[in-house]
Amino acid sequence: MIKYLSPLLVFIVLAGFLAKGLYLNPKEIPSPLIGKKIPDFKLSGLSKESPLVFSDDLLGEPFIINVFASWCGPCLDEHPILIELADTKAIHVFGLNYKDNSSNALNWLEKHGNPYQSIGVDPKGVVAIDFGVYGVPETFLIDSDGFIRFKHVGPLNRETINEIFKILEELPK
């Protein structure tokens, strides 16, 4: 009897998975870097007079890395939220300017406001590869020892900001 029932049973299990699958996003890729130390980098600043940025200099306090570019539409979508975040002065926000033209980026920040305490320029996307960036904008939360605690792909929204603050609170001070 089980022989004749087995197609039905297999199918029911399969259908269960398919139903679950409807509520998953196959395009979202979790980062293997969570819990790992951030890769070392050395980047020049956005304007000529700004100094080089070293990854080690950023450590000591938790901070946020936000990957952005002036050519990226969704970056503009999340921009107001970033500005809001910057206004609270709760956390250092580092901008990683991804494959962009520096003067375009400066104009863009002039026009829409600058939420970043410091900015590093990655014109060829080399550092971004080390961070496993695959779509701009992307946002990382780094703890004071330089370990990546959280990553978000796509434009930020209030929920993600809340999530970031929740993780921040749980971090050992």
């Binding site: 890729i29 979790p30 980062s31 293997p32 870097l33 590869i129 080390d130 961070f131 496993g132 695959y134």
Partner: peptide, 8 residues
Amino acid sequence: MVSRYGDF
């Protein structure tokens, strides 16, 4: 590649 982007 895997260390940056995962098994994906």
